[in-house]
């Protein structure tokens, strides 16, 4: 019974949520990412400071700075997060 329900649910699930499509989505995304970097071979990127014209600089900088922000936020979260009814007993 549960199995049949699951099968029905899977069939009703939209394309995006089916597990077998996750890999396709990641591949598609990866191809687009690669394309934005590869295209730099054909487009001359002129930086203002020199280093910002390096091959793939923006890609690496974007990824690393975001990773840093996420990790920093995560760490700060341990310090700052409180249950969302924290202020509810305010007078």
């Amino acid at each position: 019974m549960t199995n049949r329900n699951n099968a029905v649910n899977n069939a009703q699930k939209s394309w995006l949520y089916r597990p077998e499509n996750h890999k396709k989505l990641w591949w598609g995304f990866g191809l687009i990412l690669a394309a934005t970097v590869v295209v730099q071979l054909f487009v001359s990127v002129h930086g203002h400071f020199g280093f910002d014209g390096w091959f793939g600089f923006s890609a690496a900088f974007g990824f690393l700075s975001c990773a840093l922000m996420v990790v920093f936020a995560k760490l700060l979260g341990y310090l700052l997060k409180r249950p969302d009814n924290y202020y509810d007993d305010d007078a």
């Binding site: 934005t36 487009v43 600089f57 975001c66 996420v70 990790v71 997060k81 249950p83 969302d84």
Partner: peptide, 28 residues
Amino acid sequence: VTQLQLLLFSGLAFFALLPLMRRTLTIS
């Protein structure tokens, strides 16, 4: 080109680090 690289790779960081961003019932 630089803007697309910057944005799409931050998108990559988002999806790669999604487990670190699980929603919690919290305020900060």
